[in-house]
Every structure is written in C-alpha cells, then in structure tokens.
Design a protein around this nucleic acid. Structure first.
Lengths: 210, 210
DNA sequence: TAGATTGTTAATCGATTAACAATC
DNA sequence: TAGATTGTTAATCGATTAACAATC
C-alpha cells in the first residue's frame, strides 16, 4: 500500500476509524492483544469489515494471535493524523460555542481552542477555561497573524455565510459547522455540517416506525 | 405504496428527508412550485435520487411542472411524523445540556423540553428558558408520572449507562446520546449516538488527505 | 504440530444513477 | 400540441460479507 492510494479511501471507512481508536484507547492500559472479532463486537461491525477496513492502510495484525493493542492504536493514530496539534477558533460564544469550548479545552484530543469570537460587547474579554472571548471585528486581523486549522461555527445561520467566507479565504483548512444551514463544500476547505435539527428529525421518524 | 412497506425504507433515504424538509420550509412563503432538479441542487443530491427517495412514500409531483412546495412540505412533515409534539427531558445541565435546552426551547421543532435533570445541588431549581433543573434523584419518580418520548443525554460517559437504563425501562422511546461512549441499540428504544469526538477525528484525517 | 486468526479476493447485497415512457 | 418533468424500472456502481489460503 502506498501513499498515492490514500485519497481513494471511502468515507465510510474513515468514519469507523475513530470508533476503533476510542475503544483501543479505553483498553490500552490493561489489555495487550485483541482479535478482530473482539474489537469489531464492541464497535458494532462485523470482524470481516474491520479487517477489510484496516487492510486499506496496511498489515498490523498477527495471524493466529490478533492485534497488539498499542501497535494498532498507534497505527490508527498515525492514519488519522492525530500526532500533531490543530489550532481552532470558535465563532460564537453563545451556549453552544461555550459548551464546545469547555468540552475540548478540558480534553486532550489534538485540537487546541485558541480564541472564541463573538459580536456581543458585554462578553468580550471574558474567559472560558482561560480562552478569551474576542470581538468578531478582529477576526480577520487575528487570522492574518495566526495560522488556524479549524473554524467551529456556532452562530445563527443568517450571519454564518459571511464568517465562513472570511475563514476559508484566510486559509482555514476545515469548517465544523453547527449553524442550522449547511455550508457548501469548497475546493480548499474541508466542511463538516453537524446539523442537530436534521438529526432530531430522523429520530421522530424512527420512534414511529421501528 | 402501503404502510406495510414502511419499515423497509433505507436509513439513507430517511436521513435526507430533513434536508428536503428544511429547504422547503425556507422557501414556502415565497415560492409555489419547485422541480426535483432545483430542490436536489440545494440539498446536494442528484435529481434522480430525490425522485427515487420520494417514490418510497408516494407520488407528490406533477409531470411537466414539478412539485407544489406546500404540498410536498406537508407530505414530508407527515412522513417524518412532525405533526405531533414529542416530550423530552435533558439529562445533565452542564454547558452542553444547557445549550441544547436553549436551542430547542426557542425553536418550534415539534419537540418540547419538559425538564432538565442534574446532580449538582447548587443549580437545582434554576430555570433555563423557563425549564426547571431538577434533582436527578427524582428522575425515576418523574418518569413514572409523566410520559416522555425522548431522553437527551448530556452527562459524562461514566454515569450515562445507569441513566440510560432508567430511561429505557421507563418507556422512553428514543435516546439522543451526546455522551462520549456509544449506547448500544435495544429492542424497545431508538438510539442515536451523536459522538462529537468521532466527528472531529474524521476532520483531522480529511484536512491532511483532501 | 494443531489451532487460531489474519490478509485478501470473490460473491453478494444495497444504494445511486441513468434512461425513458407516461403525462401534465 | 410541444415542451417539460415526474415516476419507475433497469443498469451501474460501491460497500459489506463470505470464504479460505497463508501463517503465526
């Protein structure tokens, strides 16, 4: 397997890697080996699919005995590129923005929240877990001087379009969008729309039909 | 198409309906007709897929002219069962629980947040958008007396397992789980795991490989 | 060695796209 | 009527599962 093929890996495969990763993380301290059927059971996929997924990236197991937990954990870590730190800013210090700020600033998940930006003068200067809320008017200036990888959008849909343009045009590599209107994908920026309303609406369907 | 077939509709189809629904909602006041190719463009699918999706539920269009916006909106509304109100409780009044409470109590999305439960005595009795925070010790009692459809889990993974059992055994029909450990699916309860860490970890992969 | 489990290909299953007859 | 667009089936594409040789 060489790097040229990396681009062709299906989204579905990528989306399962964090599940494997998190389970391995949770057992790494007290378990040395794990088989594909054990690991797959915890994640809720077939062992065949798990092995098929890993096969995109290399050969990490031992025939007969399974996988070394530490080794497989590190391999998935490398694959997901979690060895470096990603700088992020949150746009919007409302309750959702604050919640996400608290969530990630207290965990160690290779993302570092550098600033929160908001439009409300009353809260500018306030700190959330030692991260300062700054005036949104200084966003452009801040981005010009600081390399930011990820923009986390927690503002209403009506104002999010302009802000997203500023972010993508300033070289931000990914947008994680919690506003209720989807951001269209663009060539130079990875977009992940996290629409909580859509998610809830499928729940109401399933309540009635399962 | 008869109701017996309803159970066999693919998840993928269901997950696109809210996207159609939201776009129709946004134009319902100023647009009367829409074609499959217009609507599909906004949602980011092919027109063929859109028509194929709708075909699972019936025939709502007019050959030659497309779909009546109001009519299609209402049909999707019916399909997703959004005509009734779903009672919900939030477990955990931390920043994420509070954020979700504010989000849904100020919007009109067929879900009604009835109570928030928390373990912290300092905030019990406090109201968020007129919804009271109540002692988690009274959860069982509350559920015995009030029919709740949806439980929204915003507490750490370590305590979420017990709470989820209480909820499912008390007849709650769906769990919307924001804790960082997945809840396993069960026969009598619809589970939707909304793992924000997994979502972020796929973003780091895509930043490096797209 | 015997037993177990991976890595890998082929078979199956399901989802999307293409095509076009029906018809407004 | 002529043009446009749906509804619907068949064709294609992609994802999952099954199977088993390789081998620890």
């Amino acid at each position: 397997m060489n790097n040229k093929d990396i681009k062709n890996i299906p989204e579905n495969v990528i989306s399962r890697l964090p599940k494997y990763y998190r389970y391995l993380q949770s057992i790494i301290a007290h378990k040395e080996k794990i088989t594909s059927s054990e690991l797959s059971k915890y994640v809720g996929v077939s062992s065949s699919l798990l092995r098929h997924d890993l096969h995109y990236f290399g050969r990490f197991g031992n025939k007969g005995t399974g996988y070394d937990v530490k080794l497989l954990y590190n391999e998935i870590c490398n694959t997901l590129k979690l060895n470096k730190t990603y700088n992020a800013v949150i746009i919007g210090a409302g309750s959702l923005g604050s919640a996400i700020c608290r969530y990630y600033s207290t965990r160690n998940y290779s993302i570092e929240i550098k600033k929160i930006f908001d439009i409300n003068p009353k809260i500018i200067g306030v700190k959330i877990n030692n991260i300062e809320i700054q005036d949104i008017d200084f966003l452009q200036e801040y981005l010009d001087e600081n390399p930011i990888d990820i923009g986390i959008i927690c503002i209403p849909e009506k104002v999010s379009y302009n802000i997203c343009s500023i972010l993508t045009q300033s070289g931000v590599k990914a947008l994680w969008n919690f506003s209720s209107s989807d951001v269209n994908s663009s060539d130079n920026c990875v977009i992940k729309n996290e629409n909580l309303i859509d998610s809830l609406l499928t729940l109401t369907y399933r309540i009635n039909n399962e």
